[in-house]
Amino acid sequence: MTGKPFQIAAFLAVAGLLALVPLLGSEYWLGVAFIVAMWIALIQSWSLLSATTGYISLGHAVFYGIGAYVLVVSLDWMPVPYALALSGAAAGLLALVVGLPVLRVKGPYFVILTFGFAELVKNLVMLLETRLGQFSRMIFDAPSLEALYYAMLALAVIATALAAWTAQSRFGRGLAAIRENEVAAEAIGVPVTRLKLFAFVASAIIPGIVGGLLVLRTSYFAADQAFDPVVSFTIVTTAIVGGLGRVSGPLLGTLFLVILSELLWARFPQAYMMILGALLIVFILFVPQGLAGLVSKGLKR
């Protein structure tokens, strides 16, 4: 347990550094930091369900999309902070409603079901927008990038803290038991269904708010974009590269991939995609513990 104070100090240092980015006065770097905070928040939330229980969700874009949609609709009636809260609540509610049936299936079936569900909701929202005669929506007078950034950073910190707390709580041990052997866990009295549902809802709320913040940043909403499945794929990829099951995984994965893409996107976008694919294969085959696993191995040595 000697690593723990060090770990907390490291997290605080990263958060502190990110909090200082606006002082650089560079809109570009602020934009990069915004993306970093966004992915950390998304992936930590996803890990809360998928890394802990082994229920790999390939549909987290649905929460992000529903958050964006709720925000853009509710902005007509309420100020931004309330609309953001509503985004999170809507995503959580959606998770609660679909959680029970969806969480009954396991393994590849769960993966396919979450992906299909996300596509279903996307098409339903598109249909609804069509019926409403609203085919895309714009936002005027969005808050400044700085304000949005601090909100996003707060989400990243909360999501990381939540993941850290889960890792050593009774709740987290229950989730780990589900991952190892769900039937056995249930037999010894772990409230399997309740825990899974709780993790599912918890992992949906923050992505909902993230979706709201992102649509404030781009000031334009169209359903096919807001529910972009690439978001779901990127979450899973980054989480694997970073390392599943460690709180530092999403952090390292995000920093690594964002820096990589900043370096490569300028001239070699296709190369970036290829490198991403190769990395994924390499990590799954040779570094299943991800970057976080490498780092902790290095520290022990």
């Binding site: 570009y28 934009g31 940043r217």
Partner: peptide, 21 residues
């Protein structure tokens, strides 16, 4: 020029970069 990966949020960032950096 930069690739925005068909993502409006990336494009916003790219135009900020083009203008300010």
């Amino acid at each position: 020029s930069y690739d925005d990966q068909s993502n409006p949020a990336n494009a916003v960032r790219i135009y900020e970069k083009l203008i300010t950096q």
